[in-house]
Design a protein around this nucleic acid. Structure first.
Length: 165
DNA sequence: GCCAACGTTGGC
DNA sequence: GCCAACGTTGGC
């Protein structure tokens, strides 16, 4: 799940100290993923887009099944959608909670170095969807090999942002 | 800031 | 329902 850290980054979720709404997605494919593919307890990577560098910064859990995104009806919100019918809302948003903040960014460039990740959708050119499926194999590979093991400074790989809930 | 990719809009 | 124009995403 992608977000621009200038808008909402993993530190914002960490600061929340519990579940927070993943608001503002205005794409029908993403809406359908929320509705059809995501259940409470599912895990996801938190991905920073338009960042220095862009990449995976942690993991989170779906804390609440996607529901009507209130920002679509809020004229003061940048996510306001005047065309969304109140009686048939277009846009959904799940709640997410932080599981782990990695102690480093797993950058796109680094992911591209690994054959095991060569099929990852997020690496595909022109892939702009902000929510993308990850295979179990990719998930396991990243957690096992990249999330904590760093070639730079292998010291103290302790978990930050452990869920307090 | 460039630009590739692709979703969305709207005229017809 | 075609498709050109336009808008957005997001890496670089």
């Amino acid at each position: 799940m992608k977000s621009e850290p200038d808008t909402y980054g993993i530190d914002d979720l960490a600061k929340k100290g519990g579940p927070d709404i993943w608001e503002g997605c205005r794409n029908y494919q993403v809406r359908n993923s929320f509705r059809d593919d995501m259940e409470v307890g599912d895990l996801a990577f938190f991905y920073h887009s338009n960042a220095e560098p862009s990449g995976i910064v942690g993991t989170m859990r779906i804390a609440k099944k996607a529901y009507t995104d209130p920002t679509q009806f809020d004229p003061s919100s940048k996510y306001f959608d005047a065309k969304s019918p109140v009686d048939n809302p277009r846009w959904l948003a799940p709640d997410v909670e932080l599981v782990e903040k990695f102690d480093r960014v797993i950058s796109l460039a680094e992911m591209r170095e690994h054959e095991e990740l060569s099929e990852m959708l997020v690496l595909r050119k022109g892939q702009r969807l902000s929510v993308l499926p990850v295979t179990e194999r990719e998930w396991d590979f990243i957690l096992k090999n990249l999330a904590r093991g760093s070639s730079v400074g292998s010291a103290s790989g302790h978990f930050e942002g452990e869920s307090r809930s």
